[in-house]
């Protein structure tokens, strides 16, 4: 233990407070991560696709459709042009028409030809399509994508606001705890100050202790968060594209740990990194807040 040159911090409820804040911050980050993933998937799917619908009663439907596909294939920035099969069109229209085995099941109804054009950049497909097939209806999915993106960004902003509020409350709580501690040890702090201790000497000892206690609180908070995160990961497992690492069949702690790691595998790597960094962030915030509070308090002494 280092030789004392300044009073330390009386911790009070600081670790518990930081543990709860870490738990809340972790939950907010998990929510933020979910919203981000959703928003990216919405905008990613819609941003680079255009749907072209050619009515079934268009004259010379097959030839003109073929001609349009060729034109589109030659257009710069267009990557693929895919014509939906009749079954896919039926599936697409099922919410409106109900399930039918084929178009023959609906007398008098002919299914349109639907083309899905994938592209990079923003080619003016409407003008190109209408120059070949004026009857075609062009649905720019990008517009939907932009709206979904806007919604996603709003949700992300809300989640960031929640994280920021939690951080602000944590800073306030640490600040009040440190201030109470300094007030409680006012005499000792003044003795050390008037013996010639520098402000940084006094504040660093208190801030170091605040950082250590915040780190401990952060680790406890992470421990409290782990069942929630595990449950979230289990819920996401069915939607995961990756295969989680196989767990050992033996019923040992190692196997349980491996299973747990496998479960967490479905969560975004970024989220896991952010959660892992929470105790360190708590420690940094604790250190900075304590330094600031003590240095400001010391300014009142000559």
């Amino acid at each position: 233990m280092s030789a004392p040159v300044s009073p330390g911090l009386r911790s009070g409820s600081l670790p518990l407070l930081v543990a709860l804040m870490t738990l809340l911050a972790g939950l907010a980050l998990a929510g933020l991560s979910g919203v981000q993933t959703l928003a990216e998937s919405w905008s990613g799917a819609a941003r680079n696709a255009t749907t072209i619908e050619i009515p079934a009663d268009t004259p010379q439907l097959e030839d003109r459709t073929h001609s349009l596909v060729q034109t589109l294939n030659k257009t710069p920035d267009v990557t693929t042009v895919r014509e939906l099969s009749a079954k896919e069109v039926q599936t697409l229209l099922a919410p409106w028409l109900g399930q039918v085995s084929d178009s023959a099941g609906l007398p008098g109804l002919s299914l349109p030809v639907v083309l899905i054009v994938a592209h990079t950049g923003t080619p003016d497909l409407g003008a190109i399509v209408h120059s070949v097939l004026p009857e075609a209806v062009v649905e720019e999915d990008r517009r939907w994508g932009e709206r979904l993106n806007g919604l996603g960004n709003s949700l992300i902003a809300c989640a960031w606001l929640a994280v920021s509020l939690i951080a602000a409350i944590a800073v306030l709580s640490v600040g009040m705890t440190v201030r109470r501690s300094v007030m409680a040890q006012r005499k000792a702090v003044e003795i050390v100050h008037f013996l010639g201790a520098g402000d940084l000497t006094i504040s660093s000892r208190i801030a170091g202790r605040a950082a250590l206690l915040s780190l401990a609180g952060g680790l406890v908070g992470l421990l409290l968060l782990s069942p929630v995160i595990t449950m979230l990961a289990q819920r996401l497992t069915p939607f995961s594209h990756g295969t989680p690492p196989a767990a050992s069949p033996t019923n040992t702690w190692d196997a349980l740990f491996a299973t747990w790691c496998g479960t967490l595998h479905v969560l975004p790597r970024m989220l896991l990194e952010e959660l892992g960094a929470l105790p360190l962030i708590a420690a940094c915030l604790g250190w900075l807040t304590a330094q600031t509070v003590v240095l400001v308090w010391l300014r009142r002494l000559p």
Binding site: A3, P4, V5, L195, G196
Partner: peptide, 11 residues
């Protein structure tokens, strides 16, 4: 001891 040692430690 720590009380008495303080001035030297501060230096």
């Amino acid at each position: 001891f720590d009380n008495v040692a303080l001035p030297l430690r501060l230096r």
